[in-house]
Design a binder for these strands. Sequence first.
DNA 1: TGGCCATAGATTGCACACAATCTTGGAGCG
DNA 2: CGCTCCAAGATTGTGTGCAATCTATGGCCA
Lengths: 221, 221
Amino acid sequence: MTRTVTSTERALSALRELILHGQFAAGARLGEVELAERLGVSRTPVREALTRLAAEGLVELVPNRGARVASWSVAELEGVFDLRSTLEPRLTGLAVPRARPADVAALDDLAAQMLEVGRPGPAQDLDALVPLNRRFHGLLVEIADQPALAAALAGVVHAPIQLRNFHAYDEASLHRSLAHHVEIVAAIRAGDPTWAQAVMTAHIHNARAVMLRAAREQEAS
Amino acid sequence: MTRTVTSTERALSALRELILHGQFAAGARLGEVELAERLGVSRTPVREALTRLAAEGLVELVPNRGARVASWSVAELEGVFDLRSTLEPRLTGLAVPRARPADVAALDDLAAQMLEVGRPGPAQDLDALVPLNRRFHGLLVEIADQPALAAALAGVVHAPIQLRNFHAYDEASLHRSLAHHVEIVAAIRAGDPTWAQAVMTAHIHNARAVMLRAAREQEAS
DNA sequence: TGGCCATAGATTGCACACAATCTTGGAGCG
DNA sequence: CGCTCCAAGATTGTGTGCAATCTATGGCCA
Protein backbone atom coordinates (compact mmCIF):
# COMPACT_ATOMS: atom_id res chain seq x y z
CA MET A 1 0.00 0.00 0.00
CA THR A 2 3.04 2.26 0.19
CA ARG A 3 2.60 3.96 -3.11
CA THR A 4 5.90 3.91 -4.92
CA VAL A 5 7.37 7.19 -6.03
CA THR A 6 8.69 7.48 -9.56
CA SER A 7 12.11 8.82 -10.42
CA THR A 8 10.45 11.69 -12.23
CA GLU A 9 8.66 12.79 -9.10
CA ARG A 10 11.81 12.63 -7.05
CA ALA A 11 13.71 14.57 -9.68
CA LEU A 12 10.88 17.07 -9.85
CA SER A 13 10.72 17.83 -6.16
CA ALA A 14 14.48 17.69 -5.73
CA LEU A 15 14.99 20.19 -8.54
CA ARG A 16 12.23 22.42 -7.24
CA GLU A 17 13.83 22.49 -3.80
CA LEU A 18 17.24 23.23 -5.26
CA ILE A 19 15.93 26.15 -7.27
CA LEU A 20 13.67 27.50 -4.53
CA HIS A 21 16.53 27.36 -2.06
CA GLY A 22 18.68 29.39 -4.38
CA GLN A 23 21.19 26.69 -5.25
CA PHE A 24 21.16 27.98 -8.82
CA ALA A 25 21.49 31.61 -9.80
CA ALA A 26 18.64 33.14 -11.76
CA GLY A 27 19.32 32.53 -15.43
CA ALA A 28 21.76 29.70 -14.71
CA ARG A 29 21.96 26.97 -17.30
CA LEU A 30 20.52 23.61 -16.30
CA GLY A 31 22.28 20.88 -18.27
CA GLU A 32 20.42 17.60 -18.47
CA VAL A 33 23.43 15.33 -17.97
CA GLU A 34 24.74 17.39 -15.08
CA LEU A 35 21.39 17.27 -13.29
CA ALA A 36 20.98 13.57 -14.08
CA GLU A 37 24.30 12.77 -12.44
CA ARG A 38 23.58 15.03 -9.50
CA LEU A 39 20.20 13.39 -8.88
CA GLY A 40 21.32 9.87 -9.67
CA VAL A 41 18.85 9.17 -12.45
CA SER A 42 19.00 9.13 -16.23
CA ARG A 43 18.23 12.06 -18.48
CA THR A 44 14.68 10.92 -19.19
CA PRO A 45 13.11 11.76 -15.81
CA VAL A 46 15.20 14.92 -15.66
CA ARG A 47 13.76 16.04 -18.97
CA GLU A 48 10.25 15.38 -17.78
CA ALA A 49 10.86 17.19 -14.51
CA LEU A 50 12.21 20.18 -16.43
CA THR A 51 9.16 20.40 -18.67
CA ARG A 52 6.92 20.31 -15.62
CA LEU A 53 8.95 22.99 -13.88
CA ALA A 54 8.67 25.05 -17.03
CA ALA A 55 4.91 24.73 -16.74
CA GLU A 56 5.17 25.98 -13.16
CA GLY A 57 7.16 28.91 -14.42
CA LEU A 58 10.26 28.04 -12.42
CA VAL A 59 12.44 27.38 -15.43
CA GLU A 60 12.46 28.58 -19.01
CA LEU A 61 12.77 26.05 -21.78
CA VAL A 62 14.24 26.93 -25.17
CA PRO A 63 14.17 24.27 -27.89
CA ASN A 64 17.59 22.80 -28.63
CA ARG A 65 19.13 25.13 -26.10
CA GLY A 66 18.08 23.57 -22.85
CA ALA A 67 16.66 24.94 -19.63
CA ARG A 68 17.54 27.99 -17.57
CA VAL A 69 16.30 29.14 -14.19
CA ALA A 70 13.53 31.62 -14.88
CA SER A 71 14.08 35.28 -14.14
CA TRP A 72 11.68 38.18 -13.98
CA SER A 73 12.10 41.83 -14.85
CA VAL A 74 10.76 44.56 -12.59
CA ALA A 75 7.87 45.08 -14.98
CA GLU A 76 7.01 41.40 -14.88
CA LEU A 77 7.20 41.35 -11.09
CA GLU A 78 4.75 44.24 -10.97
CA GLY A 79 2.37 42.21 -13.10
CA VAL A 80 2.77 39.24 -10.82
CA PHE A 81 1.95 41.19 -7.70
CA ASP A 82 -0.98 42.94 -9.35
CA LEU A 83 -2.35 39.52 -10.15
CA ARG A 84 -1.70 38.08 -6.72
CA SER A 85 -3.32 41.06 -5.03
CA THR A 86 -6.45 40.24 -7.00
CA LEU A 87 -6.49 36.48 -6.69
CA GLU A 88 -5.15 35.66 -3.25
CA PRO A 89 -7.53 37.85 -1.23
CA ARG A 90 -10.43 36.38 -3.16
CA LEU A 91 -9.12 32.90 -2.54
CA THR A 92 -8.72 33.66 1.14
CA GLY A 93 -12.29 34.89 1.37
CA LEU A 94 -13.53 31.70 -0.24
CA ALA A 95 -11.47 29.61 2.16
CA VAL A 96 -13.01 31.14 5.26
CA PRO A 97 -16.36 29.29 5.27
CA ARG A 98 -14.70 26.07 4.12
CA ALA A 99 -11.98 25.88 6.75
CA ARG A 100 -12.48 23.05 9.23
CA PRO A 101 -11.07 23.15 12.75
CA ALA A 102 -8.16 20.95 11.73
CA ASP A 103 -7.32 23.37 8.91
CA VAL A 104 -7.41 26.33 11.24
CA ALA A 105 -5.16 24.50 13.67
CA ALA A 106 -2.67 23.70 10.92
CA LEU A 107 -2.61 27.30 9.72
CA ASP A 108 -2.25 28.50 13.29
CA ASP A 109 0.67 26.17 13.80
CA LEU A 110 2.43 27.36 10.65
CA ALA A 111 1.90 31.01 11.56
CA ALA A 112 3.29 30.37 15.04
CA GLN A 113 6.34 28.58 13.68
CA MET A 114 7.02 31.44 11.31
CA LEU A 115 6.82 33.92 14.17
CA GLU A 116 9.28 31.75 16.05
CA VAL A 117 11.99 31.38 13.40
CA GLY A 118 11.45 34.93 12.13
CA ARG A 119 11.93 36.66 15.47
CA PRO A 120 15.03 38.86 15.36
CA GLY A 121 17.92 37.47 17.31
CA PRO A 122 20.52 34.73 17.12
CA ALA A 123 17.91 32.02 16.46
CA GLN A 124 16.46 33.83 13.44
CA ASP A 125 16.44 31.61 10.36
CA LEU A 126 15.16 33.39 7.28
CA ASP A 127 15.67 30.34 5.08
CA ALA A 128 13.37 28.27 7.26
CA LEU A 129 10.62 30.76 6.54
CA VAL A 130 10.53 29.82 2.87
CA PRO A 131 8.97 26.36 3.15
CA LEU A 132 6.72 27.42 6.02
CA ASN A 133 5.41 30.34 4.01
CA ARG A 134 4.88 28.10 1.02
CA ARG A 135 2.91 25.64 3.08
CA PHE A 136 0.79 28.39 4.63
CA HIS A 137 -0.27 29.81 1.30
CA GLY A 138 -0.56 26.35 -0.21
CA LEU A 139 -2.86 25.22 2.55
CA LEU A 140 -5.10 28.22 1.95
CA VAL A 141 -5.29 27.26 -1.71
CA GLU A 142 -6.21 23.73 -0.72
CA ILE A 143 -8.92 24.82 1.68
CA ALA A 144 -10.50 27.18 -0.83
CA ASP A 145 -10.84 24.23 -3.22
CA GLN A 146 -11.06 26.35 -6.35
CA PRO A 147 -9.14 24.56 -9.10
CA ALA A 148 -9.28 27.46 -11.52
CA LEU A 149 -7.94 29.97 -9.03
CA ALA A 150 -5.31 27.49 -7.92
CA ALA A 151 -4.16 26.91 -11.48
CA ALA A 152 -3.99 30.62 -12.17
CA LEU A 153 -1.92 31.23 -9.05
CA ALA A 154 0.39 28.28 -9.60
CA GLY A 155 2.05 29.94 -12.54
CA VAL A 156 3.02 33.12 -10.74
CA VAL A 157 3.71 32.45 -7.08
CA HIS A 158 7.29 31.40 -7.71
CA ALA A 159 8.28 34.72 -9.23
CA PRO A 160 9.96 36.30 -6.20
CA ILE A 161 12.34 33.41 -5.58
CA GLN A 162 15.25 35.06 -7.35
CA LEU A 163 15.24 37.74 -4.70
CA ARG A 164 16.16 35.16 -2.09
CA ASN A 165 12.80 35.60 -0.47
CA PHE A 166 12.88 36.84 3.06
CA HIS A 167 16.41 38.15 2.95
CA ALA A 168 15.01 41.12 1.08
CA TYR A 169 12.70 42.09 3.97
CA ASP A 170 13.66 44.87 6.34
CA GLU A 171 12.75 44.22 9.96
CA ALA A 172 9.54 46.24 10.00
CA SER A 173 8.21 44.65 6.80
CA LEU A 174 9.08 41.17 8.02
CA HIS A 175 7.31 41.77 11.30
CA ARG A 176 4.23 42.98 9.44
CA SER A 177 4.30 39.97 7.17
CA LEU A 178 4.44 37.47 10.00
CA ALA A 179 1.74 39.34 11.90
CA HIS A 180 -0.47 39.15 8.81
CA HIS A 181 -0.35 35.37 8.87
CA VAL A 182 -1.47 35.32 12.48
CA GLU A 183 -4.22 37.82 11.79
CA ILE A 184 -5.47 35.86 8.79
CA VAL A 185 -5.84 32.82 11.00
CA ALA A 186 -7.76 34.93 13.50
CA ALA A 187 -10.08 36.18 10.76
CA ILE A 188 -10.71 32.66 9.54
CA ARG A 189 -11.40 31.47 13.05
CA ALA A 190 -13.87 34.33 13.43
CA GLY A 191 -15.52 33.27 10.18
CA ASP A 192 -15.11 36.76 8.72
CA PRO A 193 -14.22 36.64 5.00
CA THR A 194 -14.03 40.41 4.63
CA TRP A 195 -11.47 40.64 7.43
CA ALA A 196 -9.42 37.78 6.01
CA GLN A 197 -9.47 39.24 2.52
CA ALA A 198 -8.43 42.65 3.74
CA VAL A 199 -5.44 41.31 5.66
CA MET A 200 -4.38 39.20 2.70
CA THR A 201 -4.56 42.25 0.48
CA ALA A 202 -2.32 44.11 2.88
CA HIS A 203 -0.04 41.09 3.05
CA ILE A 204 0.47 40.98 -0.71
CA HIS A 205 1.00 44.71 -0.98
CA ASN A 206 3.56 44.64 1.82
CA ALA A 207 5.42 41.91 -0.03
CA ARG A 208 5.05 43.83 -3.25
CA ALA A 209 6.73 46.89 -1.79
CA VAL A 210 9.63 44.84 -0.47
CA MET A 211 10.13 42.85 -3.65
CA LEU A 212 9.93 45.75 -6.04
CA ARG A 213 12.44 47.72 -4.00
CA ALA A 214 14.81 44.75 -3.95
CA ALA A 215 14.31 44.06 -7.64
CA ARG A 216 15.04 47.63 -8.57
CA GLU A 217 18.23 47.61 -6.52
CA GLN A 218 19.27 44.35 -8.10
CA GLU A 219 18.50 45.56 -11.60
CA ALA A 220 20.44 48.77 -11.04
CA SER A 221 23.58 46.91 -10.11
CA MET B 1 17.12 30.13 -41.78
CA THR B 2 14.08 27.91 -42.00
CA ARG B 3 13.74 27.13 -38.37
CA THR B 4 13.15 23.43 -38.00
CA VAL B 5 10.20 22.24 -36.00
CA THR B 6 10.72 19.44 -33.53
CA SER B 7 8.54 16.35 -33.43
CA THR B 8 7.44 17.31 -29.95
CA GLU B 9 6.07 20.62 -31.19
CA ARG B 10 4.22 18.97 -34.03
CA ALA B 11 2.79 16.36 -31.70
CA LEU B 12 1.83 19.10 -29.26
CA SER B 13 -0.08 21.24 -31.72
CA ALA B 14 -1.58 18.24 -33.49
CA LEU B 15 -2.88 16.83 -30.23
CA ARG B 16 -4.17 20.20 -29.13
CA GLU B 17 -6.09 20.60 -32.38
CA LEU B 18 -7.52 17.10 -32.10
CA ILE B 19 -8.76 17.72 -28.57
CA LEU B 20 -10.00 21.24 -29.24
CA HIS B 21 -11.90 20.06 -32.29
CA GLY B 22 -13.63 17.43 -30.24
CA GLN B 23 -12.00 14.39 -31.80
CA PHE B 24 -11.80 12.86 -28.34
CA ALA B 25 -14.64 12.73 -25.87
CA ALA B 26 -14.11 14.42 -22.52
CA GLY B 27 -12.53 11.88 -20.20
CA ALA B 28 -11.37 9.68 -23.06
CA ARG B 29 -8.22 7.71 -22.49
CA LEU B 30 -5.17 8.84 -24.44
CA GLY B 31 -2.85 5.86 -24.90
CA GLU B 32 0.71 6.77 -25.71
CA VAL B 33 1.29 4.09 -28.33
CA GLU B 34 -2.00 4.81 -30.05
CA LEU B 35 -1.23 8.53 -30.29
CA ALA B 36 2.33 7.84 -31.37
CA GLU B 37 1.15 5.72 -34.29
CA ARG B 38 -1.54 8.20 -35.20
CA LEU B 39 0.94 11.08 -35.28
CA GLY B 40 3.76 9.11 -36.84
CA VAL B 41 6.31 9.68 -34.10
CA SER B 42 7.66 7.63 -31.22
CA ARG B 43 6.28 7.66 -27.71
CA THR B 44 8.92 10.10 -26.45
CA PRO B 45 7.59 13.29 -28.09
CA VAL B 46 4.03 12.15 -27.36
CA ARG B 47 4.84 11.90 -23.67
CA GLU B 48 6.36 15.35 -23.67
CA ALA B 49 3.39 16.79 -25.53
CA LEU B 50 1.03 15.21 -23.01
CA THR B 51 2.86 16.68 -20.04
CA ARG B 52 2.70 20.11 -21.66
CA LEU B 53 -0.98 19.74 -22.41
CA ALA B 54 -1.49 18.74 -18.81
CA ALA B 55 0.14 22.02 -17.82
CA GLU B 56 -2.29 23.83 -20.11
CA GLY B 57 -5.10 22.00 -18.38
CA LEU B 58 -6.29 20.24 -21.53
CA VAL B 59 -5.50 16.75 -20.27
CA GLU B 60 -5.23 15.16 -16.87
CA LEU B 61 -2.22 13.03 -16.09
CA VAL B 62 -2.32 10.22 -13.53
CA PRO B 63 0.95 8.44 -12.71
CA ASN B 64 1.13 4.91 -14.10
CA ARG B 65 -2.35 5.30 -15.47
CA GLY B 66 -1.83 7.55 -18.44
CA ALA B 67 -3.58 10.63 -19.73
CA ARG B 68 -7.24 11.49 -20.14
CA VAL B 69 -8.93 14.44 -21.78
CA ALA B 70 -9.70 16.88 -18.99
CA SER B 71 -13.26 17.44 -17.92
CA TRP B 72 -14.81 20.06 -15.69
CA SER B 73 -17.75 19.93 -13.33
CA VAL B 74 -20.33 22.70 -13.26
CA ALA B 75 -18.74 24.05 -10.08
CA GLU B 76 -15.32 24.15 -11.73
CA LEU B 77 -16.72 25.87 -14.79
CA GLU B 78 -18.22 28.54 -12.57
CA GLY B 79 -14.80 29.10 -11.06
CA VAL B 80 -13.26 29.36 -14.50
CA PHE B 81 -15.72 31.99 -15.66
CA ASP B 82 -15.41 33.95 -12.43
CA LEU B 83 -11.72 34.08 -13.03
CA ARG B 84 -12.00 34.97 -16.71
CA SER B 85 -14.46 37.74 -15.94
CA THR B 86 -11.82 39.26 -13.69
CA LEU B 87 -8.75 38.75 -15.81
CA GLU B 88 -9.82 39.20 -19.41
CA PRO B 89 -11.45 42.61 -19.05
CA ARG B 90 -8.36 43.83 -17.23
CA LEU B 91 -6.16 42.40 -19.94
CA THR B 92 -8.30 44.06 -22.60
CA GLY B 93 -8.00 47.40 -20.88
CA LEU B 94 -4.24 47.07 -20.78
CA ALA B 95 -4.16 46.14 -24.45
CA VAL B 96 -5.96 49.31 -25.56
CA PRO B 97 -3.08 51.79 -25.29
CA ARG B 98 -0.61 49.23 -26.61
CA ALA B 99 -2.47 48.21 -29.76
CA ARG B 100 -0.78 49.36 -32.94
CA PRO B 101 -2.71 49.97 -36.17
CA ALA B 102 -1.63 46.58 -37.53
CA ASP B 103 -2.98 44.91 -34.40
CA VAL B 104 -6.30 46.70 -34.69
CA ALA B 105 -6.53 45.68 -38.33
CA ALA B 106 -5.85 42.05 -37.47
CA LEU B 107 -8.47 42.05 -34.72
CA ASP B 108 -10.91 43.76 -37.05
CA ASP B 109 -10.28 41.11 -39.68
CA LEU B 110 -10.87 38.27 -37.23
CA ALA B 111 -14.05 39.84 -35.92
CA ALA B 112 -15.33 40.29 -39.47
CA GLN B 113 -14.54 36.71 -40.39
CA MET B 114 -16.37 35.47 -37.34
CA LEU B 115 -19.41 37.53 -38.26
CA GLU B 116 -19.22 35.99 -41.72
CA VAL B 117 -19.04 32.31 -40.79
CA GLY B 118 -21.34 32.76 -37.81
CA ARG B 119 -24.21 34.35 -39.76
CA PRO B 120 -27.27 32.07 -39.66
CA GLY B 121 -27.94 30.34 -42.93
CA PRO B 122 -26.57 27.55 -45.09
CA ALA B 123 -23.04 28.95 -45.00
CA GLN B 124 -22.89 29.00 -41.20
CA ASP B 125 -19.89 27.06 -39.90
CA LEU B 126 -19.77 26.91 -36.13
CA ASP B 127 -16.60 24.82 -36.12
CA ALA B 128 -14.73 27.48 -38.05
CA LEU B 129 -15.50 29.90 -35.23
CA VAL B 130 -13.33 27.95 -32.80
CA PRO B 131 -9.89 28.79 -34.19
CA LEU B 132 -10.94 32.32 -35.10
CA ASN B 133 -12.16 32.96 -31.58
CA ARG B 134 -8.99 31.49 -30.17
CA ARG B 135 -6.86 33.75 -32.33
CA PHE B 136 -8.89 36.81 -31.40
CA HIS B 137 -8.47 36.30 -27.69
CA GLY B 138 -4.88 35.15 -28.15
CA LEU B 139 -4.02 38.29 -30.06
CA LEU B 140 -5.44 40.41 -27.28
CA VAL B 141 -3.23 38.55 -24.81
CA GLU B 142 -0.24 39.19 -27.04
CA ILE B 143 -0.96 42.88 -27.40
CA ALA B 144 -1.41 43.39 -23.67
CA ASP B 145 2.08 41.94 -23.13
CA GLN B 146 1.50 40.94 -19.54
CA PRO B 147 3.24 37.60 -18.97
CA ALA B 148 1.73 37.02 -15.55
CA LEU B 149 -1.82 37.60 -16.73
CA ALA B 150 -1.19 35.49 -19.80
CA ALA B 151 0.12 32.62 -17.71
CA ALA B 152 -2.82 32.80 -15.35
CA LEU B 153 -5.28 32.74 -18.22
CA ALA B 154 -3.52 29.98 -20.12
CA GLY B 155 -4.54 27.41 -17.56
CA VAL B 156 -8.26 28.08 -17.72
CA VAL B 157 -9.28 29.23 -21.19
CA HIS B 158 -9.59 25.71 -22.51
CA ALA B 159 -12.21 24.70 -19.98
CA PRO B 160 -15.33 25.09 -22.14
CA ILE B 161 -14.08 22.86 -24.96
CA GLN B 162 -15.94 19.81 -23.76
CA LEU B 163 -19.18 21.63 -24.52
CA ARG B 164 -18.31 21.68 -28.20
CA ASN B 165 -17.93 25.41 -28.04
CA PHE B 166 -20.27 27.36 -30.24
CA HIS B 167 -22.73 24.56 -30.75
CA ALA B 168 -24.00 25.33 -27.28
CA TYR B 169 -24.94 28.90 -28.22
CA ASP B 170 -28.52 29.79 -29.03
CA GLU B 171 -28.93 32.26 -31.88
CA ALA B 172 -29.37 35.36 -29.75
CA SER B 173 -26.35 34.60 -27.57
CA LEU B 174 -24.20 33.83 -30.58
CA HIS B 175 -25.18 37.08 -32.22
CA ARG B 176 -24.31 38.99 -29.06
CA SER B 177 -20.98 37.23 -28.80
CA LEU B 178 -19.93 38.07 -32.34
CA ALA B 179 -21.14 41.64 -31.92
CA HIS B 180 -18.99 41.93 -28.81
CA HIS B 181 -15.87 41.17 -30.80
CA VAL B 182 -16.68 43.92 -33.25
CA GLU B 183 -17.46 46.36 -30.47
CA ILE B 184 -14.23 45.56 -28.66
CA VAL B 185 -12.31 46.43 -31.80
CA ALA B 186 -14.22 49.70 -32.01
CA ALA B 187 -13.38 50.51 -28.39
CA ILE B 188 -9.71 49.78 -28.98
CA ARG B 189 -9.70 51.91 -32.10
CA ALA B 190 -11.26 54.71 -30.06
CA GLY B 191 -8.54 54.28 -27.42
CA ASP B 192 -11.12 53.84 -24.69
CA PRO B 193 -10.03 51.19 -22.14
CA THR B 194 -13.16 51.53 -20.02
CA TRP B 195 -15.37 50.82 -23.01
CA ALA B 196 -13.27 47.83 -24.08
CA GLN B 197 -13.23 46.40 -20.57
CA ALA B 198 -16.96 46.74 -20.20
CA VAL B 199 -17.70 44.95 -23.45
CA MET B 200 -15.28 42.18 -22.58
CA THR B 201 -16.98 41.78 -19.22
CA ALA B 202 -20.32 41.43 -20.97
CA HIS B 203 -18.72 39.03 -23.46
CA ILE B 204 -17.49 36.70 -20.74
CA HIS B 205 -20.74 36.80 -18.83
CA ASN B 206 -22.70 36.04 -21.98
CA ALA B 207 -20.47 33.02 -22.57
CA ARG B 208 -20.80 32.08 -18.93
CA ALA B 209 -24.57 31.95 -19.13
CA VAL B 210 -24.46 29.79 -22.26
CA MET B 211 -21.83 27.40 -20.94
CA LEU B 212 -23.34 26.90 -17.51
CA ARG B 213 -26.74 26.16 -19.02
CA ALA B 214 -25.19 23.64 -21.42
CA ALA B 215 -23.07 22.09 -18.68
CA ARG B 216 -26.05 21.65 -16.39
CA GLU B 217 -28.02 19.96 -19.15
CA GLN B 218 -25.11 17.70 -19.92
CA GLU B 219 -24.55 16.82 -16.30
CA ALA B 220 -28.24 16.05 -15.81
CA SER B 221 -28.21 13.51 -18.64
C1' DT C 1 43.41 43.96 -37.20
C1' DG C 2 38.55 42.83 -37.61
C1' DG C 3 34.99 40.03 -39.36
C1' DC C 4 33.35 35.72 -41.55
C1' DC C 5 33.25 30.85 -41.98
C1' DA C 6 34.30 26.05 -41.10
C1' DT C 7 35.02 22.37 -38.07
C1' DA C 8 35.02 19.96 -33.56
C1' DG C 9 32.99 19.42 -29.16
C1' DA C 10 29.07 19.58 -26.41
C1' DT C 11 24.12 19.31 -25.77
C1' DT C 12 19.50 18.40 -26.81
C1' DG C 13 15.92 15.52 -29.56
C1' DC C 14 14.21 11.15 -30.73
C1' DA C 15 13.69 6.19 -31.02
C1' DC C 16 13.76 1.81 -29.13
C1' DA C 17 14.32 -1.81 -25.57
C1' DC C 18 13.62 -3.36 -21.13
C1' DA C 19 11.77 -2.88 -16.36
C1' DA C 20 8.02 -1.67 -13.28
C1' DT C 21 3.28 -1.14 -12.59
C1' DC C 22 -1.54 -1.52 -13.46
C1' DT C 23 -5.69 -3.92 -15.24
C1' DT C 24 -8.44 -7.78 -16.25
C1' DG C 25 -10.12 -12.30 -16.38
C1' DG C 26 -10.63 -16.51 -14.16
C1' DA C 27 -9.62 -20.15 -10.77
C1' DG C 28 -9.84 -21.51 -6.05
C1' DC C 29 -11.52 -21.17 -1.42
C1' DG C 30 -14.74 -20.04 2.27
C1' DC D 1 -22.71 -17.76 -4.58
C1' DG D 2 -19.42 -14.26 -3.54
C1' DC D 3 -14.93 -12.89 -2.33
C1' DT D 4 -9.90 -13.10 -2.68
C1' DC D 5 -5.94 -13.94 -4.95
C1' DC D 6 -3.09 -14.76 -8.85
C1' DA D 7 -1.32 -14.70 -13.52
C1' DA D 8 -1.15 -12.86 -18.18
C1' DG D 9 -1.63 -9.03 -21.10
C1' DA D 10 -1.38 -4.26 -21.66
C1' DT D 11 0.48 0.24 -20.45
C1' DT D 12 3.50 3.46 -18.46
C1' DG D 13 8.35 4.50 -16.53
C1' DT D 14 13.31 4.58 -17.32
C1' DG D 15 17.85 3.85 -19.39
C1' DT D 16 20.77 4.18 -23.34
C1' DG D 17 22.43 4.96 -28.09
C1' DC D 18 22.42 7.62 -32.07
C1' DA D 19 20.97 11.60 -34.90
C1' DA D 20 20.22 16.56 -35.17
C1' DT D 21 21.33 20.94 -33.60
C1' DC D 22 23.81 24.46 -31.28
C1' DT D 23 28.13 26.75 -29.51
C1' DA D 24 32.77 27.90 -29.42
C1' DT D 25 37.34 28.07 -31.07
C1' DG D 26 40.59 28.95 -34.48
C1' DG D 27 41.97 29.80 -39.28
C1' DC D 28 41.30 32.47 -43.42
C1' DC D 29 40.54 36.49 -46.12
C1' DA D 30 39.78 41.37 -46.92
